Deep mutational scan, measured.
Amino acid sequence: NKEHILAQKEVLTPIEYEHYVKHLFDIGEITKELYIELSS
């Protein structure tokens, strides 16, 4: 869920976080809207 993803932002580097969010989007775990929101 969104809270879990945002928690990852605390422990990952910005680049790792971007890759993580992109991966979730690629596998269909999150919607495009959520992907855009989380990567901003």
Score class of each variant (00 low, 15 high):
N1K: 09
N1H: 09
N1E: 08
N1T: 10
N1F: 13
N1Y: 09
N1C: 08
K2E: 05
K2V: 14
K2I: 13
E3K: 07
E3W: 10
E3T: 08
E3S: 12
H4Y: 14
H4D: 15
H4K: 07
H4E: 03
I5E: 01
I5A: 05
I5Q: 02
I5Y: 11
L6E: 12
L6G: 05
L6R: 03
L6I: 07
A7M: 10
A7T: 08
Q8T: 09
Q8L: 09
K9L: 13
K9P: 02
K9R: 08
E10Q: 12
E10F: 10
E10S: 06
V11P: 03
V11W: 15
L12P: 01
L12R: 02
L12M: 15
T13I: 04
T13V: 06
P14L: 15
P14Q: 15
P14I: 15
I15H: 15
I15S: 12
I15M: 11
I15Y: 06
E16V: 05
E16G: 06
Y17E: 00
Y17L: 03
Y17S: 00
Y17V: 01
Y17F: 13
E18P: 01
E18G: 10
E18D: 09
E18Y: 10
E18A: 13
H19G: 13
H19S: 15
Y20E: 01
V21F: 02
V21H: 01
V21M: 07
K22E: 13
K22Q: 12
K22R: 14
K22Y: 07
H23N: 14
H23G: 02
L24V: 04
L24P: 00
F25D: 01
I27T: 14
I27E: 09
G28M: 05
G28C: 03
G28V: 01
G28R: 05
E29L: 10
E29I: 14
E29F: 14
E29T: 14
I30N: 00
I30S: 01
T31S: 04
T31N: 07
T31V: 06
T31F: 04
K32M: 13
K32D: 13
E33G: 07
E33I: 05
E33H: 05
E33W: 08
E33Y: 10
E33P: 09
L34F: 08
L34R: 02
Y35N: 01
Y35R: 01
Y35P: 00
I36K: 12
I36N: 11
E37V: 09
E37Y: 09
E37K: 06
E37I: 05
E37N: 03
E37S: 09
E37R: 03
L38K: 00
L38M: 05
S39E: 08
S39Q: 14
S39F: 13
S39T: 13
S40V: 02
